[in-house]
Computed example of a mutant assay.
Amino acid sequence: MTMSQTIDEFEPDRLELDLENPRFGLTDADGEPEALRILATRANLRELWDSINQRGFERYEPLVAFLRPDGKYVVVEGNRRLAAVKTMLDPTLLDGIRITPPPLDPAIKDSVKTLPVIVVAKREDADDYIGFKHINGPATWGALAKAKFGVKLFATTQIEPGTSDTRIQTLSKRLGDSRQLILRSLVAYKIFEQAKAAGMLDEDMVSDNSLDFSHLYTIIQSPAARAYLGLTEAPLNEALIKDDPIPADHLDQLGHLMGWLFGSDGGAPVIKSQGTDRPKLAKILASRQATETLEQTRDFDRAADEAGFKTDSWLNSVIQLATLAKNVSNGVAELPADMHPDNVERAQERLTSAQRSVVAAQSQLKSLFP
């Protein structure tokens, strides 16, 4: 549905923050005071406070709201800006946290007496606009907020008549993001919700939004990880975008995985680097012995060795060495005829040293594996 472009003016007190704002991630805001504190803590209101004091409230981009039965307007787009205005008008709203808005410049006060608002009939009428802006647009949310919004949007997405698209494909077109990325994010979010409800996630980390959600939606790309969670090794599908996607008989495995990715009472997360540790974990999960070792000891390096990661790494080094050696050999013919003798001597020394190392490695291999 096309969103209305009629702009009205409302006093800030008539506008309410959206307690379903995806910025809250897995945290539930019990009311507007808590929502204001969450946004002040997580959403960098300081840059907005400074902007408002310097230039006044920027009116070129209205807030978007719908009317609630009690006569209040719930802002579904522009919550950060509304929070910035409300807390500058009444700094006591942030009592209890160590963040204080700057005094509102008297010369600017008139610019926030009323705020520009586009009123829509219902929340869903603004979904496409919000999705464009915050998924791939000029003010993108973090991965967890995107996934939360995507799950909500998926629930209301209807397949376009006359097409063979799935709901995910339809949603992909609406959001302008790839089908696979949206699917992974939404399934991961439902898994995340299930883990939180089961008490598997550190509440403090959930509250301050410091969990790296990308660890989860990346690891479930691995067939071994999906099998470990009881989802089978088959590719993800939209049927998994549901409450409690992990079977009850695999909740222990879910608890282990959450601990390895995000930490738990049993210790810190084993994943330190997305680029190097995540592939190791996927390989560990493909090995029953290595997985059991990680479950029992949380010794990530030992489990990786048992999964053959050290062997794979060594073989990759051999492949790289062979490629480099070929390049070096082919490159000799292209060297300049007047190459300095010192450089020739240095190259000979390095090549001789490399040759000795290769011969030694071959000898050790022959001895260990006759």
Rank of each mutant, 00 (worst) to 15 (best):
T6S: 13
P12R: 03
D18K: 03
R37T: 09
T41C: 14
E47S: 15
E47L: 12
D50I: 06
D50H: 09
E58P: 00
V64W: 04
A65K: 01
F66C: 02
G78W: 00
N79F: 14
A84Y: 10
D90A: 07
T92N: 07
D95F: 05
T100A: 10
D105S: 14
V112E: 09
K122F: 02
E124H: 06
A126N: 10
N136K: 15
A143L: 05
A145F: 01
V151N: 03
I159C: 06
R167I: 09
R174Q: 10
D177Q: 07
S178K: 08
R179P: 08
Q180K: 09
I182T: 14
I182V: 15
L183W: 09
D202T: 03
D208S: 13
D212K: 15
H215V: 07
Y217A: 01
T218L: 04
T218P: 02
Q221V: 11
S222W: 08
P223L: 00
R226S: 12
A227S: 12
A227C: 06
L231Y: 04
N237M: 03
D244S: 10
G267P: 02
D277C: 13
D277V: 13
L285Y: 15
S287E: 00
Q289V: 15
Q296R: 15
G308D: 05
S313L: 09
A325Q: 13
G331V: 07
D338C: 06
R346D: 12
R350V: 06
S353R: 11
Q355S: 15
S357V: 05
A360Q: 14
A361Y: 10
Q362F: 12
